[in-house]
């Protein structure tokens, strides 16, 4: 239910909403999670734009990963095998060198990569490569219908028709919520079961109403 490429506005397509400041977007995501009573693991803003054909797509806008602090890093659950962990660490090492502009080195492995890459960290990282056509996946459904999608419970996620929900369940999530805003969709995920809250939806409407 997701497209594999990110979108650039086509010159003949309708003008998308003006891009908003990356820093304030990060602050809004952080405020949403840190100010919540519930324990959310991450928040992602999927930004609405258009692909080369003018079709509406949701692509990565920004994300804030909090993790599962109560559980402590050492106790974070991972279902990954040793080979999978090596793969994740290798990818992280390469991403680290991509960002820092240097070749992967022993030093890199000491500070950021040698620690286990948890399932939720990996789910969050992989999310950066994804985008959703209008109506596709949980974010696409929420945006297309202008209506929140709230999936709570491992069974509900695991039996969802959406690939992203099923992937989330495999990587230890128990709740995924997608709340539409003017220019995109705010997605929150948690390793705990969190039931629907109008308070959270109101916060999203206030924090992500970019025209104000």
């Amino acid at each position: 239910s997701s497209a594999s490429t990110s979108a650039a506005p086509a010159s003949s397509a309708p003008a998308p909403a003006p891009p908003f400041n990356q820093e304030t977007l990060q602050q809004r995501l952080q405020a949403l999670i840190e100010g919540a009573r519930e324990s959310w693991t991450y928040a992602i803003f999927w930004q609405s734009s258009y692909d080369y054909s003018g079709a509406s797509v949701l692509g990565w806008g920004d994300g804030y990963y909090k993790g599962d602090e109560e559980k402590g890093r050492g106790k974070s659950k991972t279902t990954s095998s040793a080979a999978e962990q090596e793969h994740r660490k290798k990818v992280l090492r390469e991403l680290n060198s991509l960002i820092s502009g240097s070749a992967p080195s022993a030093d890199d492995s000491v500070d950021a990569v040698d620690e286990e890459v948890t399932d939720t960290e990996w789910f969050f990282l992989v999310s950066m490569t994804q985008s959703f056509v209008n109506g596709g996946g949980l974010p696409g459904q929420a945006f297309f219908n202008s209506s929140p999608v709230w999936v709570a419970g491992a069974d509900s996620l695991g039996s969802s028709t959406c690939e992203r929900a099923r992937q989330g369940q495999i990587f230890g999530l128990q709740t995924i919520v997608c709340i539409p805003s003017e220019n995109g969709v705010v997605e929150l995920g948690s390793t705990e079961v969190i039931f629907e809250s109008s308070d959270l939806m109101n916060k999203v409407r206030v924090l992500f109403n970019f025209s104000n």
Partner: peptide, 26 residues
């Protein structure tokens, strides 16, 4: 990794930096 779009680099850099902080505080 070389295919990671430029627009997502800021998010990635922030994630890696915060991960490093979490490691140091653990």
């Amino acid at each position: 990794p070389s295919a990671v779009p430029q627009a997502r680099k800021a998010s990635l850099a922030r994630f890696l930096e915060k991960r490093k902080e979490r490691m140091m505080n653990a």
